[in-house]
Design a protein around this nucleic acid. Sequence first.
RNA 1: GGAGGAGUGGCUGAGUGGUCGAAAGCGGCGGUCUUGAAAACCGUUGUGCAGCAAUGUACCGAGGGUUCGAAUCCUUCCUCCUCCGCCA
Length: 421
Amino acid sequence: MLDIKTIRENPDLVKTGALNKNDKCDIDKVLALDEKRREIIHQVEALKGERNTASGEIAKKKKAGENADDAIAAMRAVGDKISALDESQRQVDQELNELMAWIPNMPHESVPVGADESANVIIREWGEIVKPKFKVLPHWEIGEKLDILDLAGGAKISGSGFYVLKGAGAKLQRALIAYMLDLHSADGFLEVSVPHIVTADTMYGTGQLPKLADDMYQTDDGGMFLIPTAEVPVTNLYKKEIIDHDKLPVKMVAHTPCFRREAGAAGKDTRGMIRVHQFDKVEMVMIVKPDESYDHLETLTAQAEKVLQGLKIPYRVSTLATGDLSFAAAKCYDIELWSSGIERYLEISSISNFEDFQTRRMQCRYRNEDRKVTYPHTLNGSGVALARLIPAILENYQNEDGTITIPDVLQPYMHGTVRIG
RNA sequence: GGAGGAGUGGCUGAGUGGUCGAAAGCGGCGGUCUUGAAAACCGUUGUGCAGCAAUGUACCGAGGGUUCGAAUCCUUCCUCCUCCGCCA
């Protein structure tokens, strides 16, 4: 949610921001409703003041045993006017809130302007891509061969877009989760375990609703949603809270499954584990002071990179262009890692700064050093997504004899297993 | 699922229709005192909205209603607690 004052004072800036995000929202209508709302407030508050004064006098008269029928009759008329104005304010408020909920966050000034991902800017690369001397099998082939990945089983029980991990595959995922949680915990992130089903209000708080409703699974009554990312429950832990400044930055990490309908994505990246309806992810969330949020965006990105550096998998980091930026984000880095079997980069982590967009929606505030209550900034970053990481390991750590070497950092978590197959 | 009970400011807790945004205590902040600290004493201490401001207005779990007027009455919902049932 943007500040209505920002929209009021810089409507053109907001319009440009939305346009650069390829988002059509009606800023002029918002401005008109805002105007109307303030007009009503003026009127109704004057009347309420009148009523409050008169009420005091009526009370005094009654106490003194005097007759107050005239004043009461007069106030009855005022009361009717107030009710009517209250009602129209309610309507304007509702309409305004609905429109505001659809206005995207503005891109930060450092974000490259561009219509789509082709305008993303690669800012650094890590590790060396070594082309193996043998033909590396894509993860779905090696996975089935080693009997650690069962795509047919997933399809049988849940339909296409679901996978089953078995034996060493399942253990590998568990090892990765433990490795990542331990890594982030050691760096000060509080590990939390959270519900995977949340209310609409919670989805609204981080900006998934109303815009992304079609991308999510929801209960039949429409009241509850399966989380598409741990960002939603973890960030919303601070919904409607006022945090003391000395508690910032808040750093949390959680492992959850993520549920995504991927409506309209049929036919794109459908092979293997790359695009699925349910996958596990370790996610980091930060709540920070506003003037520090862009520094934290860098450290949070570095924290996600640490996972891949530990695993010794080559990757690159890019800044998303405005057109590729999500609804709620002001700036976002993507980390893509190289997968040598399918011979392409896979998006494995997004690290975003939402500034105060989410905290406004959630009504999450903090009391700063001057005891003033204001909105902190939120950030989150995958640290990282398992359904992309496992394929990368199955491919990048594949040996010529069809076995998979377990990366060094995972071996303690695999109880001494050094290779699969 | 059944039966009861409760939701008031950072916390505890008073308030059952008329200056109640709300007593009191604790906590926080500022000060006096002190070499310093503690104690004691004095003062101060919620959030949103509208407004340049003065100020006004709203908020006592949430929504709706009754009334000239609601923290207080009615109603629906939510959450928590206790007991019973069920259960990983």
